[in-house]
Simulated assay, not measured.
Amino acid sequence: MRIPAPLSFARSALRHDAAGAGSDRPHWAARAEDVKNRLVGSTLRRLHWDLRLQPFHGYGSATQARVLAKVLYASPRTSADFHDQPVHDMRTVAVRGWRNFTSQVAPHRTVHIRLGGEEFTVRADRSGIVDATLEVSLSPGKHQAVLWTVPGNEVTADVTIVPPEARVGMVSDIDDTVMVTWLPRPLLAFWNAFVVHQSSRQVVPGMPMLYQRLAREHPHMPVFYLSTGAWNVFPVLKRFLYRNGYPDGPLLLTDWGPTHTGFFRSGPEHKTRSLERLAAAYPDVRWILVGDDGQHDPSLYAAFAERHPELVESILIRQLTEPEQLLAHGTLRPLVGSSPGGRGPLALAAPNGHGLLAALQRHGRMSR
C-alpha cells in the first residue's frame, strides 16, 4: 500500500500519561513497566514478531473525529489480525479474552490513519494506546478509519459521527448496569479475560428494551458506554452488547496498569474526564446518564449535573439487590449518597429496565 505525502499531522492525545506530567519522576511501577515493555519488545522484534493494531470504536462531530486503537506485537504465525473481525462473528469468541490480556503492547509507535479522504500520522502513548483527535469534515453516520503501522497491516476502526440535530444523548455504565456478572469487582478482570462465553453473562432485565425505546424516542440519540473496564476486554463487551440487542455505540474504556503517579488509574477520574470531554464535544446535547448504585455512578452523575445543569436530561440509576451490593463494595446497602433525589435534573431509580421505563412514563418522559 502506498503512503501518500505529504501527510497531515493530527493532535495525538496522550492523555493516559497526563496525570503525571507535572511530576519530576514517574512512579517506580510505571518505570518498571516501561523497562519490561522495552525488554520484551526487543526480544519479540528479534523473533520477528510483527506490529498489529487493535481498533476501537471512535466518535466525532462534523469537524472532528476521535480515533482509538492499541498497538500490539503479534506472532508471525498469525496470518490475520484476530482483533479486526466483525462484531457479529462469534466463531472465535471463546478464545479471545485471555489473548487480550497476555498480548504485549508496543509503546510510542508511529501510526498512520486515513479518514475522510485525508491521511494523518500520530504516535501511540507509553501503553500502546492511540487516542487521536483529527480535524476532518465528515457527514453524520458511521464511517471507517483505516489504520496501519506499515503497509500490509491495515485495520479498520468504526467512527460514529453524531448528527448536528441531535439534542439528547445517552451515557451508560456497563458492569451491573447493562450486565450482571455476580462476582466481586476485583475479580471482574479475571472474569472478562477467561470466562468469555456470552451465556456466562446475565443481562439486566429490561435494559435492552429500555435503551431501544429511548433510541426510538430520540431518533438522533448517540449512545456511549462508559466503563472503568480495560481496553483489553473491548471485543468481549462489544459482542455482549450486540448479542443482547443494545444500541451500537462507542465504548469509552481505560488502560489498566501503572501511571506516573501510582499503581492504577482512577476509575472515577476516568469517568469524570470522559463526561467532560463529551460535554465539550457536543455542547447542544442533553445527556441521559445511566448507571447503578453499587459504586460511584450516582455521585459522579450528580456532580456532573451540578457543574452542567443545562446538559443533563435525566439520571437513571439501576438499584442493585443486597447480594449484588455485597459483591460490589462489601456491604448490603448502597454507598452513602448513592440515591438520586433533591434538586437538579430528573433522577429515577429502579431495580431493572422495566422499572426505569415505567418511571420515565409516569414522569411524562417516555410515550406509553
Rank of each mutant, 00 (worst) to 15 (best):
Y211S: 04
D50A: 14
R365F: 03
R343W: 03
A302R: 15
V122D: 08
E165K: 09
T78L: 11
T331P: 02
P6V: 08
G257D: 05
R15K: 02
A30E: 12
Q198K: 13
N153V: 08
V195W: 13
P4R: 15
R96K: 14
Y301K: 03
M209L: 13
H48C: 03
N232S: 15
Q295C: 03
P164Y: 12
R365H: 11
V146G: 00
R213Q: 13
E324R: 07
V71K: 02
L251V: 03
E313C: 01
T63W: 05
Q198G: 06
E217P: 04
R273G: 02
L134A: 11
H197F: 14
L14R: 15
H27N: 10
R365Q: 11
G41N: 06
P107F: 01
Q144K: 14
R368Y: 01
L311Y: 02
G141I: 12
G294D: 06
T43D: 10
Q198M: 14
A80Y: 00
Y225I: 03
A328C: 00
A18C: 02
G353A: 02
M90P: 04
G364C: 09
S75H: 08
A32H: 04
E322Q: 13
E154H: 04
R45E: 15
T177Q: 01
L14T: 09
V159K: 10
R11T: 10
